[in-house]
Design a protein around this nucleic acid. Structure first.
Lengths: 113, 113
DNA sequence: TTGACACATTCCAGTATGGGCATATAATCA
DNA sequence: TGATTATATGCCCATACTGGAATGTGTCAA
């Protein structure tokens, strides 16, 4: 079997750095045309269009036509899925972080005494 | 240019479903040997070892030798990075969700009157 | 209708993947 | 030491990806 399709789910879709960049740009500005994205990123137009197609098929963006151009906007619910998945492990990293902190404080105390 | 390496960052590493499964298993049990993972998942041992190698290179797991077997355990900080990235968009999806809810309530009110 | 513009799509090349299989390596035991 | 167990690694194949170049498609203006 080969690597899963980028369009198979949100996890695969956001693995690509350019697509995460697009997501950030769409989050900052309410909606962007393809041309605006091309200008903001340093990527050729066909590449941007392809990335947008991936994001569209996994439901992370929507399109609307406005004259000659198309406006893409973010559909953030898909990102919530990622967030929820990671939240599963929140206790683990906070516990670990507090342990690291405790160790550091204990070490500092030992040095002071 | 080709697709980014699975080992290039945490986002690419967790794109693969088996690797997410391994992460969940390691979160449930404190630590697992390769054999335990092989048994829990329905994947051959070499495949599991390769997935673990990917997770190791991106820093999501650590290994320790215990006799003949090796115990893998989760290093959850890497997952915090994912969580933090997604948190960036939290306002957007909560806003959208409340809007959807409002619309639903308004529609229900219109039907009632 | 023709031309120009904004995007989308197709084809190509180079690369890397994930699983299966065989095999190498490390550690324990008789 | 030799055998066995527990993993890791190397090789192969089919698959899929990303970017570039060229081309198709839809919309607007004159």
């Amino acid at each position: 079997m080969a690597r899963a399709a980028t369009t198979s789910d949100v996890f695969n879709a956001i693995a690509e750095p350019r697509r995460r960049e697009i997501i950030c740009l769409l989050a900052e500005h309410r909606a962007c045309s393809v041309g605006e994205l091309v200008e903001a990123m340093s990527v050729e137009q066909p590449a941007v269009s392809k990335h947008l197609a991936v994001l569209r098929t996994v439901g992370l963006v929507t399109v609307s036509r406005h004259g000659k151009s198309r406006l893409y906007s973010l559909k953030p619910q898909g990102l919530k899925a990622i967030h929820d998945w990671a939240s599963q492990f929140e206790k683990l990293w906070s516990r670990q972080l507090s342990r690291i902190k405790q160790n550091a404080e204990r070490a500092a105390g030992a040095r002071a005494s």
